[in-house]
């Protein structure tokens, strides 16, 4: 093989796979979007109210929670993966749920990973709302609930940016979902492109396994899709940042 020839071959084959809408590649993309999308959605539904509670409600342990959030923003994915794995495995405390090696297990892992991230970024978006805005709410006759609502409105682009940052992180993550999801595809796909479809195989975990099998062109195809989605999410985030 000549130098870089394999790379060129890989890229050509990758575009072939993408353009022909290869079902294996499509199903992997679908699982990635569903798992990360759902995890992001659930994380946002936790993180945004949590960030508001931390910003507006003085309660015991508030600082401890903020410290926890800040620590959680940098949690190593493999640690989260291991934690969720030992919890969900049938021999573990939550084994009765029978959810190990399922998309749900991956959603749980990613939820744990990105909830602190969305909370943290939302917290700073709320903090960035100027004090005069809040005083204006009060002077116009608003109550505490109006302050919260108006802050949400004023910080809305920051909050959306936070959610998209979480989504981006979830999509790019591999360590945790590889452990708890098992990188499973239905029969037919192992050993190369086949008719089998992904069950818990995502763009990132598939790149890992395809590369280790030496199937560089499939990896490149998956990589191109991953980067395209990631780029789209970041362009969207940039769009919302500019709205601010």
């Amino acid at each position: 093989m000549g130098s870089f020839e394999f790379l060129l071959d890989g890229i050509v084959r990758a575009f072939e796979l993408i353009v022909t809408l290869n079902p294996y590649i499509l199903s992997i993309t679908g699982v990635s979007i569903k798992v990360s999308g759902t995890a992001t959605l659930l994380a946002a539904m936790t993180a945004i109210p949590l960030a508001f509670a931390l910003s507006f409600v003085q309660f015991r342990g508030r600082h401890a929670v903020i410290t926890l959030v800040n620590t959680g923003m940098g949690l190593p994915p493999v640690f989260v993966g291991l934690f969720v794995f030992v919890m969900l495995v049938p021999a573990g405390p939550l084994g009765f749920l029978n959810r190990i090696f399922t998309p749900e297990a991956m959603i749980i892992a990613q939820y744990i990973l990105i909830t602190p991230i969305i909370t943290g970024i939302t917290l700073s978006a709320i903090k960035a709302v100027p004090e005069p805005i809040i005083e204006t709410v009060y002077t116009l006759g608003g109550r505490e609930k109006d302050v919260v609502l108006t802050t949400l409105l004023e910080a809305r682009f920051g909050v959306i940016t936070a959610v998209l940052a979480g989504l981006g992180r979830a999509l790019a993550e591999v360590g945790a979902i590889l452990i708890v999801g098992g990188n499973i595809a239905y029969t037919g796909s192992v050993g190369g492109i086949g008719e089998g479809l992904s069950y818990t195989r995502t763009l990132t975990t598939a790149i890992t396994s395809e590369t280790s099998k030496g199937d560089i062109s499939t990896s490149i195809a998956l990589g191109i899709i991953l980067i395209a989605i990631y780029l789209f999410v970041n362009v969207a985030a940039g769009f919302f940042r500019r709205q601010d």
């Binding site: 021999a91 084994g95 090696f101 990188n183 499973i184 029969t187």
Partner: peptide, 19 residues
């Protein structure tokens, strides 16, 4: 069939944990 491909050590451990 759902296949989890791992090294043998991990594969056995996975079975031992009922997964």
């Amino acid at each position: 069939i759902l296949t989890v491909c791992q090294g043998t050590g991990k594969a056995i451990a996975t079975g031992e944990m009922g997964a």
